[in-house]
Each structure stands twice: as structure tokens, then as C-alpha cells.
Design a binder for these strands. Structure first.
Lengths: 345, 345
DNA sequence: TTGAAAGCGCTAACAC
DNA sequence: GTGTTAGCGCTTTCAA
């Protein structure tokens, strides 16, 4: 087997506990022995065994990642990679690793969380999404297990540490921007309808409309699950409404691009016939892929901050860790157009 | 603390070892005690402790993931997410978890691998990239530690289990397609120049040219690192060559889209003025985002297969596990055009 | 078919 | 300052 603390102790002529103290850089060990022990470690190529240490410490230096049920969808969305990059950096800085838990159904995912938690595999958990009535949250709360939520909690916002954007405001700003360009018929393409994020954004969208004296229309509102399968049909229906929208607020860049292509194939051009503002500005803007007017929700920083919050929580258990709202900012490009006279019919 | 095997043993009136056997479903335990023990587990809400089990078993059921140095670049590329999704599924099916190791420099990443391996954190390792002269591979080989490489090994291909596409052939087919459309001036936009994948594809590209009696030109060949910072400049230079290419073979969809946009802003349209074939058909095609003619290298399956191979390797140590070549296939869409008379000048 | 006990590699309380 | 010892929670010989 591999070289252990005992081997080092023997070579350095000390007790295993002394070696352990040297590893922890315990100040009560004399410099002389420290040097001797370190030489022995070097010589033998010793590396501490994480598992044994974890067992003794009751802590693994690992954070568990929980993704939403439809992991296929999630993985395919650039937002995911961006959050993950932030998480990874935030964890790495504090010497934590990330363990991924995936599953093909909510049940499987929940089981995975239970195993992670009760199995002692992770010190804390990051929920990469916020959904209404989430089983997992209730479970973690009931066990008083440290976790951080990415997205706003549906309930118990006071008791949960979370990292989120101000989705209400972001959607409202996006909608206002379109309204200010003279659009009266503005549609909303949301993310998954069970996500709190979608819910908040819808409220922001509707809020903006109402403040402009416009009544929200249900036939202008769509969710991701409807679009995933039959985007083309939905777009066709949209364009055959008696009052076709002239602008859309869209959940993310990916959907926006997809919608734009679909509309184009139906003869509806962006921005000439349809203005589009997307939320969650991700890699597309970074590499100047598209030229969407977009609200950058800074997902990298969201992930980064989530990791930081969780680590902090682990460092000072019991203490209430402040939730964080990551600021968004508006990025104007050229997927929108001031409304034309003929569109005002 | 949490409920342990001892608590269960006590409640069920058996020895801890018996409980352990029940967990392992040891056939030598009578059905009667099994039932009694399981009832006790149920009643107490017992879940085995992974760490303790790992220590006793000298195995963690965790696979370590190693990403290329420039993790920022990598994370932003949809290819990454797709491979990851495949890995995740392949691992999950066999009850393995994935542990991510990231770092901001090659040195940091290597250190991370050493810690994972010597620290006993993982049972095996997946290298998500193949680079020339990779330190990490030498290390893993020297310790005889199980690992699988995604991409073709630069050396020792016989001794290493790897999962790859036939990148040579893929690039050759892409190039041939363009040549068959009448293009004579075909450029190559590669990935990172140190990646074996890039190297192989370049060979395929050059091979196709040579078979058509065309001499490859260095000023038609570019690598990712050059483009990342100054894509616009590079494209400008390309267009101001005395003999401007009429077609490009591009490393992936993301770059292709980016290049297309850049060229368009310079007045060079796809496919009218420039035909483009991309490799690594990823999410873009899945959601019909773009209409690139592309070679689908099936990265999901690549990741999936890599996980499977590694798991198999762990199951039968010593045995030589067959490397896998994941087939690619050509997807014709509309980013290419038969060469026009006037372009043949 | 089951129990007792040793041990996986490390840490930490207690002793000197 | 350093050694001794008893766990951390589980598996696995060896005995019975």
C-alpha cells in the first residue's frame, strides 16, 4: 500500500502524532523536528490520505453540487457552464473540491443528496437552481445541513442563504426598455415554469406593462418546456395571432438565438419585425457571437459567490451568512428597434 | 452524531459485523435476521457512512475529472458541457460520482491530480483532453493508477486506454467535401495548437489537400490561441491576402459561429463568399440554432464511453481495456456553396 | 449463521 | 515538545 504517517514517523524517529502535528503545522513542535519530519515525508513521497483524515475530522473539504432534474437541459445551457466555472473558482480558492450529483429524475437526485449528506461525503451543498416546493430544501433544513441556494428561495427566504440576481428588476428593465422604444405588444418567453427565477421575471415583466397601462395577455407568455419540443409551432401560432407582438423578452441568449432563427425562417426578422431582449448574457457576448441586446446577470460571479458563501458558512457554523444579490447590467446591442409607424396599427 | 452501524446493531440485537453483512447482502445471513436488521435501519433512518466505508475498502466510488489548464476557455465551450453530461451519465449508471479538479495553471492542476491520487480520494481518473508531452499522463502511468484519456494519446497509444474520434478522418472528410464543391483555397482554423486533436485534424486537412494536388499554405492555417484575443484582426488579414480562401474547415461550432459573424462584419458572407464546415457539432445543432454544415463528433457519447471504460477498468484491474473510437458523421446544412465561376479566378 | 476483534490512516485528548 | 492511546464508522478475517 501507499506510504502512511507511520512510515514517516518511523523514518523520522518520532511518533505518528508528531507527524500529524507537523502536517497541521502545529506551533508547539520544535523547528528541528519539523525539518526532520518534512525531510522524511519528502524522502518517502508521503501524501496524507484524505479519506482517513476525513473520517477522523468528520469533514471532507468537499462541496456537493445539485443540479435540477432535467440535467440534460441544464447541461446544454451555457449558463450552467458559467455558474460551474464560478463555483469551481470559489471552491478552489478555499481548497474545497466539488462533487457532482446527477440523476435522471427528481427522485434519483433527491436520493443522491441524501447519500451525500448522510454518507458524510460532503461538508455542504450547493443547489444550482431554485424551484417551487422543493423537497430537497426541506430535507436539508430539517437536518440543519449547511447549504446555499442559487436563486431566490420560494419560501423561508429569511432562513436560507442564497445568491441570486434581482430577477424582478432585470425583467422589468428589459421590458421597460422595449416599452420606451414604443413597443406596445411585448411577449415574454420564460424559462422552466417551476423555477422561481421564471416566476420573478414574469412579475417584473408584468409590473412594467402595468405601469405603462398595458394589460398582460396570456397568449403572449410562454415557458421553456413548451418551446423545447415544438418551438416552431409555437412561433407560428405567435405570428398568426390577430395582434402579433413586436417585441419579446426572452429568458436567455440561447433561447433568444433559437427563437430568432425560427422566426427568421418564418419571414419575421430581428430587429426589423421583432425586437428581442435576452436575459442571462453568457458566453455569446463574451466572444461576440451574437449581437443581442441583453441583460447580463453575471452568472460567473453568482457561482463564485455561492461557493464563497457556503465556505464561509462552514467556517463559522451557527452564524447567519448574508445572502447576496448579484447586480445585473444592461448591455445594448442591436436586436431591438424603435417601433415603426406601420407597426403601430 | 449521525446514526451508525452500532446503533442499528444494538437495536436489532446483533453484532455490527452482522449489520455490515446485511448491507452487503451477504447470502450467509439468515433471512430472518436480515429482515430484523433492515427494520432497525429503517426505524433509525440509517445511511452508511461513505468515508468510513471508503477507508475500510480502500476505494471511494469516485472518479476524478481533470480539465485542461485553460479551464476558463474550456468551461465556456459547449463541447465541455456535452462531454461532462456523457461522463456524468456513464458514471451515474455504475454508481460512481464525479469529483472535479480545477486549477489556474498546469502546475496547480497537476498538484490537484497528485492529491486526488495519493490522497486516495478517487478510484480512477478521466483526463478530459489530450495534450502533447503531458506531465500528468507520465505520472499516472508511473504509479500505475487507472485512468482514461479523452482524445488520442500523443505517445504510448498501446498502453493507454482512450476514447477518441477519428479526428484525422473527420477533418479529411470535411476538407474533401469542400474540395468536391470546387474550392481550391481552403483554410484551416484549429483548436489549441498543443492539443493532439488539433494536430490530427491538421493532418487530415493537409492529407485531403495533397490528395487533390494542392499544397497546404501556412497563411491559411490558424490556431485557437491566436484567435481568442484578436479574431477580428486575423480575419482582416485573411481577407486581405492576395488569394483569399473561399472556404474554411473550423475546429468547432462556437468558433465557426464567431468567425462567421466576424467575417460578415467585414462584408464577407457565408456561404456566398465563404463556405464553412465545422467539426464538433454540439448543442447548436441540437436546438437547431445555426445551420452549419458540420461533422458531429458525438461528444456526449465520447464522455459516456470514457466513464464506462474507466469503470470497467476498475472492475477488472490488470485486464487491458479496449480503447474506443467514437464514430462521427457528416451533417449537411447550408453554410457551404459550390464554388462560383467568378471565385475561380 | 453469527460474534469478537483487528485494522484502514489519521487526529486529538491526555499524559509526561 | 513529544509520545500514548482511543477513537472516527466500516469491513473482514478468524473463531465459535
Amino acid at each position: 500500500m501507499a506510504v502512511t504517517i507511520k512510515d514517516v514517523a518511523q523514518l523520522a524517529n518520532v511518533a505518528p502524532s508528531t507527524v500529524s502535528r507537523v502536517i497541521a503545522n502545529n506551533p508547539r513542535i520544535s523547528e528541528k523536528t519539523k525539518v526532520r519530519v518534512r525531510e522524511a515525508m519528502e524522502k518517502l513521497g508521503y501524501h496524507p490520505n484524505f479519506i482517513a483524515r476525513s473520517l477522523a475530522n468528520q469533514s471532507t473539504q468537499i462541496l456537493g453540487l445539485v443540479m435540477p432534474g432535467s440535467s440534460e437541459t441544464f447541461f446544454n445551457n451555457p449558463t450552467f457552464a458559467t455558474i460551474l466555472r464560478g463555483l469551481s473558482e470559489g471552491a478552489r480558492e478555499r481548497k474545497y473540491s466539488l462533487l457532482m450529483n446527477t440523476g435522471n429524475s427528481d427522485e434519483e437526485i433527491f436520493e443522491g443528496v441524501v447519500e451525500m449528506v448522510q454518507g458524510g461525503m460532503v461538508d455542504g451543498i450547493i443547489l444550482m437552481y431554485s424551484r417551487m416546493n422543493d423537497h430537497t430544501i426541506t430535507y436539508l433544513q430539517s437536518r440543519n445541513f449547511p447549504f446555499v441556494l442559487i436563486g431566490k428561495p420560494y419560501e423561508f427566504a429569511e432562513e436560507i442563504t442564497y445568491v441570486d440576481n434581482d430577477n424582478y428588476l432585470a425583467a422589468k428593465e428589459a421590458t421597460n426598455y422595449l416599452l420606451d422604444l414604443g413597443h406596445k405588444k411585448v411577449g415574454f418567453i420564460g424559462g422552466h415554469s417551476k423555477l422561481v427565477m421564471t416566476h420573478d421575471r414574469l412579475l417584473g415583466y408584468e409590473g412594467a406593462l402595468k405601469e405603462h397601462g398595458i394589460v398582460p395577455r396570456n397568449d403572449y407568455i410562454f415557458y421553456e418546456e413548451a418551446l423545447r419540443e415544438e418551438m416552431h409551432e409555437v412561433m407560428q401560432n405567435l405570428l398568426s395571432l390577430s395582434e402579433v407582438p413586436t417585441a419579446l423578452v426572452v429568458h436567455d441568449d440561447l433561447m433568444a438565438l433559437s427563437i430568432m432563427n425560427n422566426l427568421r425562417s418564418l419571414g419575421c426578422l430581428t430587429p426589423e419585425h421583432m425586437s428581442i431582449v435576452s436575459l442571462n448574457n453568457t458566453l455569446f457576448s463574451e466572444i461576440s457571437l451574437s449581437s443581442f441586446t441583453s441583460i447580463d446577470t453575471n452568472m460567473y460571479h453568482t457561482g463564485y459567490q455561492a461557493a464563497r458563501c457556503l465556505v464561509q458558512k462552514l467556517a463559522s457554523p451557527g452564524e447567519r451568512i448574508q445572502s447576496a444579490i448579484i447586480p445585473h447590467h444592461f448591455v445594448e446591442r442591436d436586436s431591438c428597434q424603435r417601433v415603426q409607424a406601420e407597426m403601430l396599427v
